[in-house]
Design a protein around this nucleic acid. Structure first.
Length: 308
DNA sequence: AAGACGAAAGTGGTTGA
DNA sequence: TCAACAACTTTCGTCTT
């Protein structure tokens, strides 16, 4: 589903570079930032976060989890070392080497494969490096706890990625994960839930605002429309319109409304497609927005008349 | 003719007994 | 484990532009 940008909308240049860490796509010709993840919106209040202080590990050792040995490989001995060792040490050397071999086989072999798959999916979805790291970490933990048993490696990878996306506020929908990984949507969701539960990872409900930038860009909407829709979202959250609803539906509706306001009309179908929901859902959310918020007057500016 | 709207029935997942 | 339930989807008919 992800509509990939191939050309710069500004100058038409085709040489785009992608900064993984910042999640931006930049035109090398005119410097336009075509797509970027919007600035952090401080974590939104939600009503059901009853989980008590699950400690969040924000920081950790400076290792990388995207390599199966976490970038800290231990090579037991090189030939060169061998020459310098005496008899006793030499035996020790062989013992250690054998050990190393034994340990590494099972888990690490699995990790090696899984992380390759993880990287593939991650780059397909153009996920920032930080998310890739996080999901690799999650996967590693999952393997160590034997959670992969009975599940396909790929589905656990997908679940880990999904979880990592959510934690980093760069949500991808289950549909996208499913498409990228070739795992059924149901299955991705299932393993996602299983893994997060087993590992005790708390995940905040995703915030509709996190989807706005991506959807807006796919629809080629202006920046004003984008920020307007974020305003709308904030109001909606105050009016308690958002809890329990699918975040993508709400984001889509907000975007739809603000597009109307700015005379950048998109059909419900177009918006529905990029958001991965149906028109009906947009209509429902849209109606709720109109009922609850005083948006009608603003829409009138671009429309001649409006009844009701 | 296409888009917007709404009703009705169906689906998959969560929750609570 | 099962039933009730909410959110969302699918489908389809009608109205609006």
């Amino acid at each position: 589903m992800p509509e990939l940008v191939k050309k710069c909308p500004e100058c038409g240049g085709a040489s785009l570079s992608w900064n993984r860490d910042r999640g931006e796509i930049i035109c090398r010709d005119c410097g336009l930032v075509i797509e970027e993840k919007m600035v952090d919106f401080s974590q939104e209040w939600r009503e059901f976060d009853s989980e008590d202080g699950e400690k969040r590990r924000r920081s950790g050792a400076p290792m990388t989890y995207t390599q199966y040995d976490q970038g800290l490989g231990t090579e037991v001995g090189q030939k060169a070392d061998l020459l310098r060792l005496g008899g006793k040490d030499r035996n020790k050397f062989f013992r250690l080497r054998k050990w190393q071999y034994r340990i590494s086989t099972a888990i690490e072999r699995n990790l090696k494969l899984a992380l390759a798959e993880l990287k593939r999916v991650s780059s397909y979805l153009k996920l920032p490096k930080s998310v890739e790291e996080e999901s690799a970490r999650i996967y590693t933990l999952a393997v160590q706890r034997g959670l992969v048993r009975g599940r396909s490696m790929e589905s656990v990878v997908a679940g880990a990625l999904y979880a990592a996306c959510r934690r980093h506020d760069v949500p991808r929908t289950l549909d996208e994960l499913s498409e990228a990984s070739g795992i059924e949507k149901k299955e991705v969701g299932r393993t996602y839930r299983f893994v997060t539960r087993e590992l005790g990872i708390t995940i905040l409900p995703s915030n509709p605002a996190d989807y706005i930038a991506r959807f807006a860009s796919a629809l080629k909407l202006s920046a004003e429309t984008q920020s307007k829709s974020i305003e709308i979202l904030e109001q909606a959250q105050k009016a308690e319109l958002t809890s329990g609803r699918g975040p993508t539906g709400i984001a889509a509706a907000a975007l739809y409304v603000s597009a109307l306001m700015h005379g950048e009309k998109r059909t419900q179908r177009e918006v529905a497609d990029v958001a991965g929901v149906t028109e009906v859902t947009i209509r429902n959310r849209y109606k709720e927005l109109l009922d609850e918020l005083d948006l009608e007057s603003e829409i009138k500016k671009t429309k001649k008349k409006k009844k009701r």
